Computed example of a mutant assay.
Amino acid sequence: MTASAPKPAQHARAHRQTAIDALLRHAITGRLTIPEAALLADYTAVERKLADITRQQLADTTRALQRHREAADAEIRQLEARIAELDASQEAA
């Protein structure tokens, strides 16, 4: 199976991550310029926003899965009760 090409968002994120790493190296060595600092702040803000969105989506998915699990459990209990009723009626007959 061949790997698909990265999507534009994945490419942009990889670019931001590479740039953040380079800018942090500049900051650590004391060579970060004001424009680079502004770029670092912008890229960091974008990454934080995307992380917040991802966290919210994961929380929404977790809640939806819990609702589906609860609904499935309720359905299973109803079916088990129905089976027990049918078994009891067959034994009585």
Rank of each mutant, 00 (worst) to 15 (best):
A41S: 11
E85Y: 07
Q66L: 14
R55L: 11
P35N: 04
A84G: 10
T29G: 11
A5C: 08
D52M: 13
D42T: 05
L40R: 01
D60C: 01
H15L: 07
R13T: 02
H15R: 06
R55E: 13
A59W: 05
A71V: 03
I20K: 01
A12V: 06
I28L: 08
T61Y: 15
T18F: 02
D60S: 07
H26D: 13
A59V: 04
E85I: 01
Q17P: 00
Q66Y: 11
E85W: 06
I20A: 00
A12S: 12
H68Y: 14
A93M: 08
A74P: 00
A81N: 06
A9G: 13
A5Y: 15
A51Y: 09
A93C: 04
A37W: 11
E80N: 09
P35I: 02
A71R: 12
T54N: 14
I76T: 09
A22C: 11
L39Q: 15
A64L: 05
S89E: 15
L65Q: 12
T29E: 15
E91C: 07
Q17N: 12
A64R: 11
Q56I: 04
A74K: 08
R55C: 10
Q57S: 14
L40S: 00
I28D: 13
A19F: 01
I53P: 00
L65S: 15
T44P: 00
T2G: 06
T62C: 06
E80Q: 11
T29C: 06
L65E: 14
A9N: 12
A92I: 02
R16C: 00
V46G: 00
D52P: 00
M1I: 05
T2I: 11
T33R: 03
A5M: 10
A19V: 06
G30A: 03
Q10H: 06
D42S: 04
P35G: 06
E47K: 04
R16V: 00
Y43V: 01
D60I: 01
R16G: 00
R16W: 05
A74N: 09
Y43D: 12
D87N: 10
I34W: 13
L40Q: 01
L86S: 11
R25K: 15
R13V: 02
A9H: 10
E70M: 10
H11Q: 15
D73K: 08
A72C: 10
E80K: 15
A92E: 07
R63G: 03
L23M: 01
R63F: 04
D73S: 13
R67C: 01
D52V: 08
H11V: 14
R25L: 09
L32V: 08
A9Y: 07
A81D: 07
A72V: 10
I28T: 11
A38N: 15
A27W: 04
E36F: 02
L23H: 00
L58T: 13
L58Q: 13
R63D: 03
L50G: 02
T33C: 03
L50S: 05
Q56K: 09
Q10Y: 07
A51N: 15
A41Q: 09
R55W: 13
L40M: 05
T62L: 13
D87S: 11
A5V: 13
A9P: 04
A12I: 08
Q90K: 11
A93P: 01
L58W: 08
K7Q: 09
L79C: 05
H11A: 11
Q10M: 02
R82A: 15
P35A: 10
A37V: 07
